[in-house]
Design a protein around this nucleic acid. Structure first.
Lengths: 107, 107
DNA sequence: ATTTAGTACTTGACAATACAAGGTAGTTGA
DNA sequence: TCAACTACCTTGTATTGTCAAGTACTAAAT
């Protein structure tokens, strides 16, 4: 899988997932992996950054299957960010697709 | 415009443009700018890399409007790379779009 | 003749993101 | 008790793109 395409999109995917429901880190790694190949060492720093930027709040919940789970909950600011990024993505993906179509006309 | 989305896609766009017809650097900057905001200092190093990787060959043509133009021409290897990247992009964009749709179901 | 505008390209310092590899620590079941 | 799984986190590195600055060439305006 192309590493470079992922840049920036991971943030959107993580925001979308947490926007839907509160999730803990490990769970997110599993969820996001369904969409794009991703390393857990990529997700955790990203979660930290998004929390620092006030898009997420966190709380701990004890688990019977290992260490306590740190849950991430989206904030109002986070919801705004989701909207923004989602719109950006749509515009971006559309213009790339358009360019691909154009470039295939005389092929 | 989101900087990060660009990563990796710029390569595809440049390859697509040159695949369609031979182009010189400055011309490419103008062409690519139609799709994504991009600095000329981003394009030239990219062209150099793609040439080093044997996706492009170059030749010079005198110009009446300034210094000689360095034209980029796609190679067989480059054509393969276009196909590959284009397919990768489609798969990637589709799975992201799918995830966006899924995540909006219960919103 | 000199300046200005536009074309064409290069270089180097910098920022952001992702990966690989490693570490810590709790719980369960053989 | 110890392997396997869950859960979390950090560090070093590579890649890619950004930005600022600079070089250099030509044509047209002054």
């Amino acid at each position: 899988m192309n590493t470079q395409f992922k840049k920036g999109v991971l943030e959107l995917i993580v925001l979308l997932a947490v926007n839907k429901k509160d999730m803990y880190g490990y769970e997110l790694v599993m969820e996001v992996s369904k969409v794009v190949d991703v390393n857990d060492g990529t997700i955790y720093p990203l979660l930290k950054r998004l929390t620092n930027e006030r898009y997420f709040e966190t709380y701990l919940v004890d688990s019977t299957e290992g260490p306590a789970r740190k849950y991430y909950k989206i904030t109002v600011l986070g919801k705004e960010r989701v909207e923004e990024l989602r719109d950006n993505w749509k515009v971006f993906a559309n213009s790339v697709n358009k360019f691909i179509k154009e470039s295939m006309k005389n092929e």
